[in-house]
Each structure stands twice: as C-alpha cells, then as structure tokens.
Amino acid sequence: MFTFHISDELELRILENRHAEEVWSLVSLNREYLALWLPWVNHSIYIEHTQQYIQAELERFAKNSGFSCGIFYNQNIVGCIGVHEIDWRNKKTSIGYWIGEAYQGKGIMTNACRSMITYLFNQLRLNRVEIRACTANLKSRAIPERLGLKHEGTIRHAELIYDRYYDHEVYGVIAEEWTN
C-alpha cells in the first residue's frame, strides 16, 4: 500500500484495517483533547467505528477520490492526515489532520502536511490545496501559516461542533506558488 517516507523517524502510510486498534487507542487516549475541535471524536466510541471509517477510506482510495494516512513517528502511529474529496476536473482538494497531544511541538504535523502537499502537486498534478481550521484552533492554524499558505478568508458558522457553531479560516496554495 501507499507509504510516503519523510525521514528516518517519520512516514505516512495509507490506513489499513490492521491499523484500526492502534488508531482507536490513540483517539481514546486523546478523546477529551481531540473532541475540542473534531465533532466525530465523541461518535467514534467503539473500535468498530474506527474499522468502518478505515474501510470507507480504503474504498475512497480505490475510487481515486481521496485517502487517509496514519502518521508514523518512530514506527508508532501518532495521528492522521487525510486528503478530502479530490475534484479532478478542477485539480483541487483539501487536507485535514489531527495528532495526539503528546506529539505536538515536534514538527511532525508540519512535516506531514508539507510532504502531503508536495505529493499532491508533484505526483497527482493537482493545482490547488486548501486547509481549513476553526478560527479559535490556533495550533491547527499555525501549520498552514508556517508553510506559507495564503489566508483567503473566514467562513462564518462553517461547522457545528456539538452545540456550538465555529467559524473556519481558509488557507490555500496553488502549485506555482509551492516552494517547500
């Protein structure tokens, strides 16, 4: 399956069924932290939910319309990065990501996003990649800012997380601008 080697310590691997327990355990360990920004967390209670998610992502990968990868740091899964629905006609997509709280601040997610964007431009020949993050999620917003994506605006009330609407900041980059 798809593996993207970033460094001796870091690589992205397409999520497979065999990763379900490890992903579920990481989410469970970080449930309270992740639930602040990710509405799916409190609906993914049982390992079967993770298995169903991975199977759906494998089907999306088979249809060439997007995929999700585990982020492996020193051979352990520490988070995930996903390519949302690919618009092949317009050659664009967006990416989303999450990481266990203990692994923040090590440059893991920045390197994972940099590598994924490079892959999307160089290998899939896309023209545009977008990242959206809740306005108040400063750690998530720091990644596209650090990578030099342009802030393109704010979408008001873009996402309902439990009982509250959150605005999203939109960051984008096009292939001809990408120099990372």
Score class of each variant (00 low, 15 high):
residue 5 H to S: 15
residue 6 I to C: 05
residue 7 S to L: 04
residue 9 E to F: 09
residue 13 R to N: 10
residue 14 I to Y: 15
residue 15 L to D: 07
residue 16 E to P: 10
residue 17 N to E: 15
residue 22 E to M: 04
residue 23 V to C: 08
residue 31 R to H: 05
residue 39 P to W: 08
residue 39 P to M: 07
residue 40 W to P: 00
residue 42 N to I: 09
residue 42 N to Q: 08
residue 43 H to L: 11
residue 44 S to V: 08
residue 50 T to W: 02
residue 52 Q to R: 15
residue 52 Q to I: 11
residue 54 I to W: 04
residue 59 E to P: 06
residue 64 N to F: 09
residue 71 I to F: 03
residue 72 F to N: 06
residue 73 Y to R: 07
residue 80 C to R: 07
residue 84 H to W: 09
residue 88 W to I: 04
residue 90 N to M: 01
residue 95 I to G: 00
residue 95 I to Q: 03
residue 98 W to R: 04
residue 103 Y to C: 01
residue 106 K to D: 00
residue 110 T to A: 05
residue 111 N to I: 13
residue 112 A to S: 07
residue 116 M to R: 02
residue 126 L to Q: 04
residue 128 R to P: 07
residue 129 V to N: 01
residue 129 V to A: 06
residue 132 R to K: 10
residue 132 R to C: 08
residue 133 A to T: 03
residue 134 C to T: 15
residue 141 R to G: 10
residue 143 I to L: 06
residue 149 L to N: 00
residue 155 I to A: 14
residue 160 L to F: 01
residue 160 L to G: 04
residue 161 I to L: 09
residue 163 D to S: 09
residue 163 D to K: 06
residue 164 R to H: 13
residue 164 R to I: 11
residue 170 V to R: 02
residue 172 G to D: 00
residue 173 V to H: 00
residue 174 I to Y: 03
residue 178 W to A: 02
residue 179 T to R: 12
